[in-house]
Nucleic acid binder design. Structure first.
Lengths: 346, 346
DNA sequence: CCCAGGATTGTTAACGTGAACATGCTGTTG
DNA sequence: CAACAGCATGTTCACGTTAACAATCCTGGG
């Protein structure tokens, strides 16, 4: 019967069930006021024909795409990847589809392009995982009326925000080192235009100040193990004073561990190292890395919760949610070697 | 001009440019036979109004969604995450949108649900990244006529396939150990229902056989560092005979390194270790890990190339592409200690 | 000057769905 | 018995776009 090859539509189901297409629509959308017997007949017809509603047609007439957009920086960093997956699952659970654009770098031009693409698709809300200062700035010229949630974005005006308590986590890590007795904690910082890097640095600085400790100029890395390796090598000459390193992420901490191992510096006997992220590898490094865990699953879920709320209520009050971070003490930290003891050169 | 608030549509652009909406359509779709002057006027009007074509309407009338679906197993494994990102970029470059469903596990039911969701969205092609045997099997009942490409799927009938030369990579790794002089190479295998795990095991086994070496029963892990750690601990009692370990991925190799370090076994002096994947951390482990690199970017690109070809040509001959793997020799491998030398117990 | 024929533009009708309104039917109540 | 409420179902139209066909305009050769 007609339409050979093409997938069945409401009219086909309606004909088979002996009703009008609008009744089929009502069954599909679970509207009330459909006689149970009719509903059964329609459902049977849908199953028999293998009917699937056409989302494009529905989106056209309802002006709702039920799609959320995500802009993510490319890169295989553990955090973003984890967050992305949990966003997908949370969105699905709430009946939303997801459209993802990954960008190499967050220049205003690239961001504009990504926005263009998502706008075309008619996304109803947007998650921006581009935690860099200038990215947040160029977010100001977003299409107005589109709900936006930033991840680690520090809350651009008018947007919701989900952020991990980076400063708190960094403070906990630093305090741990201070309490072990370290008097000079060097920070191996992330790129300066990343808001997370800045917050972690700030947490470290504040804690050192409170404890009356110096805050030596941080070494700067780019999150990669290689940059951590390089930074730690530059540190080797200063190891008589420096007894602890707080790295802004686990990969840089890993690079630092490598540099220390090559130089014969023992961790944690000669120098303590703390990371940030708790990557799956952290527990099995040499030595197992003391680090700060971020609950990326919670971050993703909060994003979607905030965004769907904004989409559906449209009351537009931009909330900010802070997810706590948790210090995990493993074996890369210990009290400093007593003064005067030969230490790593011995 | 009505429609206050609502975004402009073709009719609005047409009115402003003083043409009919179909001319606007022609300009948008770059059809020939539009007078340059008219085209300019239309483009100017589009820019002035900030016009964006409505993809839902287009999809409805053309019966083309320009969307590809991806089914991926959840997990933050390095390989899948990398592949996913490169698939997204490749799809975008070819003008396709992407819809991703991540599934916790690949049971037939979950797979069916994911398929349902993607079918509703009208995807024109499907990438399945679920390299487990029973997943491939339940792929047999896929909607016919939908082009499918599997990643590491071993080529279910009628589907395209992209796979890394796992066996070749494993053989290269094993050969490297054999050439160093190792006579007993133990394999730390991945889960038995993963096709990649099986292929790597097969590469190892074949190479040992060819070299006339024994193929001791592999130890089984689940890709996690923890499982590698446990497996290596079980190995500790046999280290007088075993001088080399080939792990099926870097994370398990990492766990093994940890277990050896704790037991005072030196790598590579007492035992050599090889991994697989070349995760970003591999180069900076202790010691830097000899491993096999997979070109995940190439995998993603091949997927999309195969799939878009199948979508657009519909000649339906399912191709298989094999991406080579490359051995990277670092510092976790060395010749075995000479027989009779005390070794790790000394 | 007239007409063929290509270039350019317009008219109309789908595409599959849901909203708004209309209709008929049943049973209840004054 | 009539009016009416309330449920079940149907009719018509609109959503924004493209396809198919129709109409118009110009250009140049006879």
């Amino acid at each position: 019967m007609g339409r050979q090859g093409r997938s069945p539509v409401m009219k086909d189901v309606a004909r088979l069930a002996g009703v009008s297409h609008i009744t089929v629509s009502r069954v599909v959308n679970q509207a009330p006021n459909v006689h149970p017997v009719t509903r059964e007949r329609v459902i049977a017809a849908m199953i028999e024909l293998g009917y699937r509603p056409n989302l494009a047609a529905r989106a056209l007439v309802t002006r709702r795409s039920h799609t959320l957009g995500v802009i993510a920086v490319k890169g295989t960093l553990f955090g973003p990847a984890s967050t992305l997956l949990s966003i997908e699952q949370a969105a699905r659970a709430r009946g939303y589809y997801l459209s993802i654009v990954s960008v190499d770098d967050v220049t205003p031009g690239v961001l504009q392009e990504a926005l263009e693409r998502l706008a075309k698709q008619g996304v109803e809300g947007l998650v921006v995982m581009a935690p860099r200062r200038h990215a947040i700035e160029s977010l100001a010229q977003m299409p107005p009326g589109l709900p936006v949630v930033t991840v680690e974005g520090g809350g651009a005006p008018g947007t919701g925000a989900v952020l991990v308590d980076q400063a708190g986590g960094a403070a906990a890590a630093t305090r741990h080192l201070v309490e072990l007795g370290h008097r000079r904690v060097v920070h191996l910082a992330g790129p300066s235009d990343w808001l997370e890097a800045e917050a972690r640095q700030e947490g470290w600085r504040a804690t050192c100040r409170e404890a009356g400790l110096p805050t030596p100029r941080p070494l700067r890395g780019d999150w990669s193990p290689r940059s951590g390796y390089r930074a730690a090598r530059r540190l080797l000459g200063r190891l008589e004073k420096v007894t602890a390193v707080f790295a802004a992420n686990d990969q840089m901490a890993l690079g630092a561990l490598r540099a220390f191992a090559e130089a014969g510096v023992r961790v944690p006997e000669d120098v303590s190292v703390v990371g940030f992220d708790d990557i799956p590898e952290a527990e099995f490094l040499h030595p197992p890395l003391t680090t700060v865990r971020q609950d990326f699953a919670a971050v993703g879920q909060c994003c979607v919760a905030l965004l769907t709320h904004a989409v559906e209520q449209a009351d537009g009050h931009a909330e900010t949610v802070v997810v706590p971070a948790q210090l995990l003490v493993r074996s890369s930290t210990a009290p400093p070697r007593p003064a005067g003891v030969p230490g790593w050169r011995g």
